[in-house]
């Protein structure tokens, strides 16, 4: 019966203030989503660090493997034209 006592792990994401996206804050254990939310509120926002919380069962997260680093992320590093600093603008031109 010891299995029944083990509460699953949840990942906690907190929006620290309006205008920002939710950021991973850590994890915690809870028997269900409702208590996970409440535990997250008590644990990760007791100093007023958040305005919104998500909790996600850790098992529901699919992560990219570090081994895929090359095919996953290197092509993106190879496209400097996606970044504004790629373009040269004459001095004095504003609002660009």
């Amino acid at each position: 019966m010891s299995d029944a006592k083990d509460w699953p792990l949840w990942e906690v994401f907190v929006r620290s203030r309006r205008g920002l996206s939710h950021t991973h804050a850590g994890s915690l254990h809870a028997p269900d989503a409702e208590l996970a939310l409440r535990n997250a509120r008590d644990l990760y926002t007791r100093r007023g660090e958040g305005v919104s919380i998500w909790v996600v069962p850790s098992t529901s997260i699919t992560a990219s493997s570090p081994d895929e680093k090359d095919p996953f992320f290197e092509p993106a590093a190879d496209k400097p034209y996606r970044h504004p600093t790629f373009y040269e603008i004459p001095e004095g031109v504003k609002h660009l």
Binding site: H29, L35, R38, D42
Partner: peptide, 11 residues
């Protein structure tokens, strides 16, 4: 009974 409740009860 569980660490998470330590935090909740103290709150």
């Amino acid at each position: 009974p569980v660490l998470e409740e330590e935090v909740a009860l103290a709150n």
